[in-house]
């Protein structure tokens, strides 16, 4: 530990200009994604509670209700538990990878000094957000791939063959994960400390999963609860995913007997805008005078 070999003097002002270019912010955002994804998969509790949780739940439901029928196709085939729960768990994955993951992660980073260190570096805030969004996107995509692979290979869920369905999957996934991520960033401002982050965030995501048709069939919920759940984005993500993976005949179980895809786009879009405004207003690198 003797000395740096570099002998050039500390340079003056001119060579330090980083500029404020958008390109730099995007390039550094890309680096952040790699950094964030790597760190994500090394964090045991996140991997379990956020990444594997829907996978575990899909397995439990598929095995526990293996004899039950959740409806019938026109050909008279039973809709198995795995078939019924696959779209629900894909939607839950979007919520967990976005809202739960980022709200807890950023609240922890706020309290453990990560954000303070970044605040003292020339990292643009935008790049930090690109990193978090990218982390949600990449891990959410990997999660969806695991769910689909498990459903198809182990539980024999038939996957849609129409490109049309996969197109819907693509936009529901992208809009869902981006909206969830932005809402997660906004929600990270609520916990007062890193320790309270899970206590604040998990009840919210858990209740949403119960009332939005993830664990309980949405059609079995009372009307008032359905209406209440319709305010929040998860119900719409689940509905969008059901439109992709469930047989067309099951549309009769939906509210208004329609998949309501325009409604899915509209509500998620609105929440995206609300989340962006809240995140913009509430996010601070550090609480300046705490």
């Amino acid at each position: 530990m003797s000395a740096t070999t570099s002998t050039t003097p500390a340079p003056r002002t001119t060579s330090h200009a980083v500029g404020s270019s958008i390109l730099r912010a995007i390039r550094l955002g890309g680096l952040r994604i790699g950094y964030e994804v790597r760190a994500y998969f090394r964090q045991g509790d996140t991997v379990f509670f956020t990444f594997l949780f829907p996978v575990v739940m899909l397995t439990i439901f598929s095995v526990s209700f293996s004899q039950a029928s959740f409806g019938q196709t026109v050909d008279g085939d039973d809709v198995s538990a795995a078939w019924f729960y696959l779209p629900a768990m894909l939607a839950a994955g979007l919520l967990l990878s976005g809202v739960q993951n980022l709200a807890i992660d950023i609240a922890l980073e706020k309290s453990d000094g990560t954000l303070k260190r970044l605040a003292g570096s020339p990292l643009p805030v935008v790049s930090y957000f690109i990193g978090k969004l990218g982390q949600s996107f990449v891990t959410g995509l990997a999660q969806a791939a695991v769910l689909l692979a498990l459903g198809f290979t182990v539980f024999g869920v038939p996957l849609p063959e129409e490109p049309q369905n996969w197109l819907v999957f693509a936009w529901v996934f992208v809009l869902g994960v981006v909206t969830s991520a932005i809402l997660g960033i906004a929600l990270s401002a609520v916990p007062r400390s890193g320790k309270s982050a899970t206590a604040v965030v998990i009840p919210i995501t858990l209740v949403l999963q119960f009332i939005s048709g993830v664990y309980l069939a949405f059609s079995n919920l009372p009307d008032w609860l359905q209406n209440f759940a319709s305010v929040f984005p998860l119900k719409w993500m689940a509905q969008g995913m059901r439109s992709v993976f469930l047989p067309e005949e099951l549309v009769i179980l939906e509210p208004n007997e329609s998949w309501e895809l325009p409604g899915v786009a509209l509500v998620l879009g609105l929440w995206l805008v609300v989340g962006l405004v809240l995140a913009r207003l509430t996010f601070r690198w550090i609480r300046k005078d705490s």
């Binding site: 500029g19 790597r38 260190r117």
Partner: peptide, 25 residues
């Protein structure tokens, strides 16, 4: 701004980051 921060080096008093990256990363 960022140009100014690029000219500073800051070693804070304490660090409790989760540290899920390697030293070289």
């Amino acid at each position: 701004g960022l140009d100014w921060k690029a000219r500073l080096g800051i070693v804070l008093q304490s660090s409790g980051e989760s540290g899920n990256v390697t030293v070289i990363e």
